[in-house]
Design a protein around this nucleic acid. Structure first.
Ligand SMILES: [Mn+2]
Ligand SMILES: [Mn+2]
Ligand SMILES: [Mn+2]
Ligand SMILES: [Mn+2]
Lengths: 220, 220
DNA sequence: TTCAAGATTTTGACTACTCAAAATACAAAC
DNA sequence: GTTTGTATTTTGAGTAGTCAAAATCTTGAA
């Protein structure tokens, strides 16, 4: 069985490899920084993962997941995201505090427990941040989302995903009532002033600079 | 923060030290067997725990928890038992499969999550096996339970705890509808034949040999 | 009192991470 | 075509657990 460390490494490589494009290599420095270890640690650990057939390692170039590695990464991601949703939905936890909890729980949730949680939540497809939950089979449907600052006035849609998941930004989104699922219509867009204004589905209006709006992805 | 290993050791020492009586020492061999490690491993690990102030170690005699060690043990036990109840109650899992799940989960449940689960379950006092759940403050009320085979005919009570928690026995208890909470009245007791007969609160009657009845503890 | 059996501890070795610091490779600038 | 800066790898060392097997108690019989 894969240790927590191994699971964290493959999950992180998966998250760092760009969504589109042909299988691109993840640089060791980038991986080490994301996992908060020194580069030498990442190098030695990656050799172990390559040995185990979870990654392809090209010295001085980077790593890429093998199909076995990607399968494991998606399984960990499924556990992580279902747990996050469970914590918010069932245990009514604050959405800023769930990530760290899920970071630990993702390694000890058995398949039996996982499928129970999935059933309890009604087989959800996205987590509280709007990230897609991989299916038990390991497939992950791609969604068409557009950044809020790219929407023309008059366009309406639903908040689909919050791209910046730092505590402070999540707290801000909560304040502004812009959590995934919220419907909205863009009422103004000022490219020179670099800001957008949107009317939410319960009437309230919010103004955001392009910097913030870029991190809010909309399902049109 | 204590590692899973440390938590398992202190919890196991707690469970092995006899409920009543003055602080008795737990033998290394007994501890090693319960934790499924070789005796030498237990010895070296216990030295580490003694170093950390969690146990008092008397070479060639045994170990005893310090008050800090007991506090940690009770905290782990609270997590274990609340998780077990949660798995049965909320996730509708089979009570024979919950122990191993709880064995892992008990090490990664934060206090925040734990208190949420506690609230969701309505601040329960016993787990699915009838074991008392320590309070958040670390107190554990003692219950007065009598083994079923010691009850005189005519006595009635409620199943309080199943002392033998091996899978097979739990399955049997389930079959016989004798889970904790079930009311019953002893209708016959044969000391020579070494068996008892009880009428359950929904009418059904069951006969048990003293060997099995001894493992079913009743709240009179 | 002596001794053998059983329990316990010690020793030496191994796995899985991890870091600090030195060595090396690469690529871009001069 | 060097030089220099940055990323990466290597080396050496340490922590936490674990086992196999040898050494060492302790104790109850003989
Ligand atoms: Mn994790
Ligand atoms: Mn998420
Ligand atoms: Mn455990
Ligand atoms: Mn239990």
């Amino acid at each position: 069985m894969a240790t927590s460390t191994v699971e964290n490494y493959v999950k992180q490589i998966y998250l760092l490899q760009p969504q589109a494009g042909p299988s691109h290599l993840v640089a060791m420095g980038e991986l080490a920084a994301a996992l908060a270890v020194v580069p030498g640690t990442a190098t030695s650990m990656i050799k172990t993962l390559a040995e185990a057939g979870l990654v392809d390692y090209e010295p001085r170039a980077g790593v890429r997941l093998t199909s076995r590695g990607e399968k494991l990464a998606l399984h960990v991601l499924r556990r992580h995201r279902l747990v996050e949703l469970f914590l918010v939905q069932t245990l009514k936890m604050d959405w800023a505090e769930i990530h760290d909890e899920a970071e630990q729980l993702e390694h000890v949730i058995s398949d039996r427990v996982l499928e129970r949680i999935d059933a309890l939540l009604g087989h959800p497809t996205v987590d509280p941040h709007g990230d897609v939950i991989p299916s038990a089979a390991g497939s992950m449907p791609r969604r068409r989302l557009v950044a809020l600052h790219d929407l023309e006035p008059g366009t309406s849609g639903v908040v689909g995903r919050i791209a910046d998941q730092a505590d402070a930004f999540l707290q801000f989104i909560d304040q502004q009532e812009l959590r995934p699922g919220r419907g909205l219509e863009v009422v103004a867009r000022d490219t020179l002033g670099r800001m957008v204004r949107a009317r939410l589905d319960h009437g309230r209006e919010v103004s955001l600079g392009f910097g913030a709006a870029a991190k809010i992805e909309i399902e049109v």
